[in-house]
Design a protein around this nucleic acid. Structure first.
Lengths: 225, 225
DNA sequence: GACCGCAGTCAACACCGTGTCGAGTCGAAT
DNA sequence: ATTCGACTCGACACGGTGTTGACTGCGGTC
């Protein structure tokens, strides 16, 4: 096969089948239509025909650009996870002001998910039925769990955080909490924390779970400054 | 209408349309088939025809008993939530041994969900597309959040737990964490805590988040025994 | 003991969304 | 001018859903 270059660089192209050329705008038109419709109604209520008509093409032509409706969503999700992963550098100078850095981390996630809530919500909905979405989401989560696990271990090593649960288990629990709480908050579904407060609530639980206090010690190893 | 009596007492009957009579076993046959098939493949891959044939009836006859495929799942979910709610009495003598009681609470939930994981997983999958499932689940969660919130406030009142986050927000965060962690563990999907450890991991986070320690003070107000 | 009504049953149908196939158009390169 | 491949769509086959209308058999009732 030709593994043609794609807008997203190295990725094995979730979108167009091959080649390059004019239809690039068609592809983005489909994506844009999907995002627009997603703001109006749930993913399940959007047919391929809707997407095609919205992009000014016929249904068979849609299949030239995407193998399925889900693939469109996957492409949209790729963008979001890319943006989320970009929040990675936060861990570097954690010890200088742990509280501020953890907050920054959570706040960035919140901003990313909140800024694309329609896409994220739609993904949560199809995660049940689509293995590919499930896989991609699991990957993203795994990266974040690993990063948080490493940060917790570092904080324990420098004496700022006490020992306790295996760092990985703790990281999984905290990330899971965030995911579910955000979902409820953005979906307005079931008991939810007010959107205004959600970052601070999550932060508090994180700090207490990791440090046993909401004011973790700053800089070098050991005690208070 | 006649609002005929149903097996589940007062509920506005999720199942059969009206009346009584012989077809009771057909109804349970459908339910049993659903549970059996759910153990084999995801809910979305089960058609109404599968359910009907499994119960020894034709597809139109299925509609005599249930208005839709989702209604079958809802009926199954009703049973599970009933069982989960039965774990309610745990809060009563909490102060006598907080750790043991919180553990009991979490363990009971774990047992209930684990014992019906196929149903619970299926519900999680259709929650995205079915408002009724979403509503019912939200109700259950809300009951639990309220109970936990009240317990936290009581522990704070007796001086066993320090002040901090609003009790409701904390209760939401902790319940959300549990839900998501269980989901991952039972579904084997994405980063998950080992099933053996999951109760203890969750318990640890709960205790630390509520008491700032994994060994909360026992009995009456104040200090160690 | 004919009749009614109703729980229970299903063949057949109408409908909708998906995915595919084959026949095309058109512009750039040869 | 022809060829090639990107691109397009009408028309179809398929599978699942939900409904209709006709049928069966049984308990009650005059």
């Amino acid at each position: 096969m030709t593994t043609a270059r794609t807008p997203t660089g190295a990725a094995p192209t979730r979108g167009r089948r091959a080649g390059r050329s004019t239809g690039d705008d068609r592809e983005t038109a489909i994506l844009a239509t999907a995002e627009r419709l997603l703001a109006q109604r749930p993913f399940a209520d959007i047919s391929i025909d809707d997407l095609a008509r919205g992009a000014g093409i016929s249904r068979p032509t849609f299949y030239f650009y995407f193998p399925s409706k889900d693939a469109v969503l996957l492409t949209l999700l790729d963008r979001v996870t890319e943006e989320a992963d970009a929040a990675g550098g936060v861990f570097e100078r954690l010890a200088e002001d742990p509280r501020a850095h953890w907050r920054e981390l959570i706040a960035r996630f919140h901003a990313t998910f909140g800024g694309h809530r329609d896409v994220v919500l739609a993904c949560a909905q199809v995660r049940g039925t689509n293995a590919e979405v499930r896989r991609l989401w699991a990957e993203v989560l795994e990266r974040w769990v690993r990063a948080v696990q490493a940060a917790i271990e570092a904080e324990r090593a420098r004496g700022a955080a006490p020992d306790g649960l295996p760092a990985r288990d703790l990281a999984i629990a905290l990330n899971s909490m965030n995911e579910r709480v955000w979902y409820a908050t953005f979906a307005g579904d079931g008991p939810a924390v007010a959107e205004r407060d959600v970052v601070d609530v999550l932060l508090d639980v994180w700090l207490i779970a990791i440090y046993r206090t909401t004011t973790p010690p700053v800089t070098a190893s050991g005690g208070t400054p």
